[in-house]
Amino acid sequence: MSGHVEILERRAGAVDIIVVKGRLDAGSSEKAEERINRVLDAGGRSLLVNLCDLDYISSSGLRVLLAALKRLKKDGGALRIACAQPQILEVFTMAGFHRIFSLSPDEAAALAGFAVGS
């Protein structure tokens, strides 16, 4: 079941942007994981995850993001998260993930972060 999440993909130069909207819970995280892995399988090494319109994330959603971060770090890539709303940030903080992810207030700032290297 994944009807409560919407995932869009875009590119900005060498950066792959994945926009996750709605709910990222145990029922929808597999779909997000598949989409992210497809981008990484295609050679993507700079991944921006836009969470501007994400309403909810659980530990299942964090697991997907952590798996992507681990894979990218191993391959010399980078992952940046843009625009997580306060309640989403609170979940990141509870998990200690605010210390291991690059969190940017908006997509432009995240893109600029790739430009200077991360």
Partner: peptide
């Protein structure tokens, strides 16, 4: 309880859900 202070590469993901329940 999960280990929250170790590097991303070494973190097991299990236990986070219960940690959230206890925290909130």
């Amino acid at each position: 309880p999960p280990l929250l202070d170790i590097p991303a590469e070494e973190r097991p993901i299990g236990g986070l859900g219960v940690h959230f329940i206890r925290t909130v």
